[in-house]
Design a protein around this nucleic acid. Structure first.
Lengths: 146, 146
DNA sequence: CTGGCTGCAAATCTTTTGCATCCTG
DNA sequence: CAGGATGCAAAAGATTTGCAGCCAG
């Protein structure tokens, strides 16, 4: 319990941000979180222990962490942004049915033969398919191609 | 000029959609388009030749084409969806500055060592960096990492 | 004390939807 | 002529912003 707070405090100090209870709660929730939560998810989770927390504060906090390189903003889910506290370069696997997102740490060789003169600074692979829970009960409706 | 119309008509017939002037215009605009336009871009472009065109119609048309596998909806731009009439599997290169999107047709070997029991059905690589026009005048502000 | 933060509400922006009317097949 | 398609406006979501008051440093 204490380590989490300490880690959250360290991050704020390192970034020159004030140590507010709201920030501590958000950072504590994100630390080690591999669920790739949305802003709404984070707000809901943190609100449980911290009633009165504003969604705007969540967005503000996420934006400052993202701008300082402490948080990745994933565009992998078409309907909303997802956040990942693991800022090491890695890839993602998304379930087309339940939208669960899992991490892929494998390093791939992605030499681009002809980058049209672009200066490439990074990459991200999105694998899509069906998670173990969803691949059985696959919906008979849309084939859900992307 | 005639080929475009014919091609648009063929697509509608193949999909069992009615041949309306709005659809012809949208399909005509998308045919061979490699700019990865947003719904707003498409609406603006088509409105020029077809005043009165409704944005809702653009969204409806794009949704039906996407559902029938004739159009890819790209989630590559955080602020809005982009559309790609090239439905062959391929990857994208996005300029972090001007948001231009270019196609990468190279095929990469993306064997995932441990997919956590997921059934993987596809993948998409997003390369990011700076296009030839932007890499010179790189903004001194945010490093814009993703 | 003072500037950065928070909460609230209003504003934006993108995308979706309901519905009456229109027009293709 | 009928059902799909269109246009308009309203609605729905997600995210951003303005601002007054609050609190960490």
């Amino acid at each position: 319990m204490r380590e989490k707070n300490t880690k959250a405090q360290d991050i704020c100090k390192e970034l020159g941000l004030k140590l507010t209870p709201q920030r501590m709660a958000i950072l504590g929730y994100l630390d080690g979180n591999t669920a790739h939560p949305s802003a709404e998810d984070i707000h809901a989770a943190v609100s449980r222990r911290f009633p009165g927390m504003s969604l705007a504060t969540v967005y503000n906090t996420l934006a400052s962490l993202r701008d300082r390189g402490k948080l990745l903003e994933l565009t992998i889910d078409p309907s909303k942004k997802r956040y990942d506290p693991d800022t090491r370069p890695h890839h993602h696997l998304i379930c087309l049915d339940c939208k669960r997102v899992s991490d892929i740490d494998h390093v791939f060789d992605l030499e681009v033969p002809d980058p049209f003169g672009y200066e490439i600074t990074g990459n991200h692979i999105e694998f899509y398919g069906y998670c173990p829970e969803c691949k059985g009960k696959k919906t008979t409706s849309a084939p859900a191609r992307r």
